[in-house]
Amino acid sequence: MRAARFSRFGGPEVLEIVNLPEPHPGPGQVRIAVRAAGVNPSDWKNRKGLMDQELPQTLGYEAAGIVDELGDGVTDVTVGDPVFGVCAEAAAQAELAVLSVYAPIPPSLDFPAAAALPATIETAVRALDQLGVARGSTLLINGASGSVGSAAVQFAVARGARVIGTAGAANHDYVRSLGAEPVTYGEGLTRSVRALAPKGVDLALDVAGSGILPELIGLAGGAEHVLTVADFAGAQKYAVRFSRGDSGRALHALAEIGELIESGRFEPPAVRAFPLAEIAEAHRVSEEGKWRGKLVLLIG
């Protein structure tokens, strides 16, 4: 099967499409014929050698496609079902992939839109779970217009929270359409937030990593009410919780997202798709960080 891989660290030029043996599912897993696979910042960080990966390295943690082989004990799907989910290993950007966690693709979504969901919604829900966001909470989200931020806004609103979200002025209408009250990030943020919430907020979530943890701590009344998924150094410096996947994944989000999408309470991120052969260009766009939505590779 064709799969994306790199055998040395470096720029997008080290990426290659190679032929690898077909994978097979273990107990409780399914194999899919991949139609689309997500591209995430962790891909180019791995490629550049920033995450202590061994070589050679395949890529991709999220995919959508058609079930073509079942592992022992799987009874909730059948061969031919369209599903999306999380790859058992970093090997989703291939013609075949084994999913350890999966869910039916919501009827209104195509394969690229479904492949864009797993990492985004898992990160957003994990952060909200760890913060304890619930009905009646007032939550400040720093970076509300990006893929993870916009997902966090919508999940928080669905829980009954009031959400204030930072974004550039050009994205205020978008953030507002998701159910949040937008404020402009940068100088004057504290003043802008207090104009909406004079007593501050209950909780704050940083998904942008833009160096404003001190302001979030002040607005939320203490570091214990703040969580970041993007500023590891700042979290250590200011005693703020840092959430990462190995601290307990919120994989229940995959099973829950379909009902929210079909009821009109969740708008999936905008998708920009590239053929597998153009994976290097997808990495360049991801590394630039200018695309607000999600990048995916089209396969099969």
Score class of each variant (00 low, 15 high):
Pro41Gln: 08
Ser42Phe: 10
Ser42Val: 15
Ser42Thr: 08
Asp43Asn: 12
Asp43Trp: 06
Trp44Ile: 09
Lys45His: 14
Lys45Thr: 10
Asn46Gly: 04
Arg47Phe: 11
Gly49Val: 08
Gly49Cys: 06
Gly49Lys: 09
Gly49Asp: 03
Asp52Pro: 02
Gln53Phe: 06
Glu54Arg: 05
Glu54Thr: 14
Pro56Cys: 15
Thr58Tyr: 15
Tyr61Asp: 08
Tyr61Arg: 12
Ala63Trp: 07
Ala63Gly: 08
Gly65Met: 11
Ile66Trp: 05
Ile66Leu: 10
Val67Gly: 02
Asp68Ser: 03
Glu69Ser: 13
Leu70Glu: 05
Gly73Ala: 11
Val74Ala: 04
Val77Thr: 02
Val77Met: 09
Thr78Gln: 13
Val79Thr: 10
Asp81Ala: 15
Val83Lys: 02
Val83Gly: 01
Gly85Cys: 03
Val86Lys: 14
Val86Ile: 15
Val86Pro: 10
Val86His: 10
Val86Gln: 15
Val86Ala: 11
Cys87Trp: 14
Cys87Ser: 15
Cys87Ala: 15
Glu89Thr: 15
Ala90Pro: 13
Ala91Arg: 12
Ala92Ile: 00
Ala92Ser: 15
Gln93Trp: 03
Gln93Glu: 12
Gln93Thr: 04
Ala94Met: 10
Leu96Asn: 11
Leu96Ile: 12
Leu99Ala: 10
Val101Asn: 11
Tyr102Ser: 00
Tyr102Asn: 05
Pro104Thr: 10
Ile105Val: 13
Pro107Ala: 13
Ser108Met: 08
Ser108Thr: 13
Phe111Ala: 06
Phe111Trp: 07
Pro112Asn: 11
Ala113Phe: 01
Ala114Cys: 00
Ala114Asn: 01
Ala115Ile: 09
Ala116Trp: 02
Leu117Cys: 07
Pro118Ser: 14
Pro118Thr: 10
Glu122Val: 14
Glu122Asp: 01
Glu122Ser: 02
Thr123Leu: 05
Val125Asp: 05
Val125Lys: 11
Val125Ala: 02
Arg126Ala: 14
Asp129His: 00
Asp129Lys: 03
Asp129Trp: 01
Gln130Ser: 09
Leu131Met: 00
Leu131Val: 00
Gly132His: 04
Val133Lys: 07
Arg135Ala: 12
Gly136Asn: 02
Ser137Asn: 00
Thr138Lys: 13
Thr138Gln: 07
Thr138Cys: 04
Thr138Gly: 04
Leu140Val: 08
Ile141Glu: 05
Ile141Asn: 06
Gly143Ser: 09
Ala144Pro: 03
Ala144Glu: 06
Ser145Trp: 03
Ser147Trp: 12
Val148Met: 12
Ser150Met: 06
Ala152Phe: 01
Ala152Arg: 01
Val153Lys: 07
Gln154Pro: 05
Phe155Leu: 07
Ala156Met: 01
Ala158Gly: 09
Arg159Gln: 00
Gly160Asp: 08
Ala161Tyr: 07
Ala161Met: 08
Arg162Asp: 14
Thr166Met: 08
Thr166Trp: 00
Ala167Asp: 06
Ala167Phe: 01
Ala170Tyr: 12
Ala170Ser: 14
Ala170Pro: 11
His172Thr: 01
His172Leu: 11
His172Trp: 01
Asp173Leu: 09
Asp173Gln: 14
Val175Trp: 04
Val175Ile: 09
Val175Thr: 03
Val175Asp: 07
Arg176Gly: 03
Ser177Gly: 07
Leu178Val: 08
Glu181Thr: 10
Glu181Phe: 07
Pro182Glu: 09
Pro182Phe: 07
Thr184Ala: 13
Thr184Gln: 15
Thr184Leu: 08
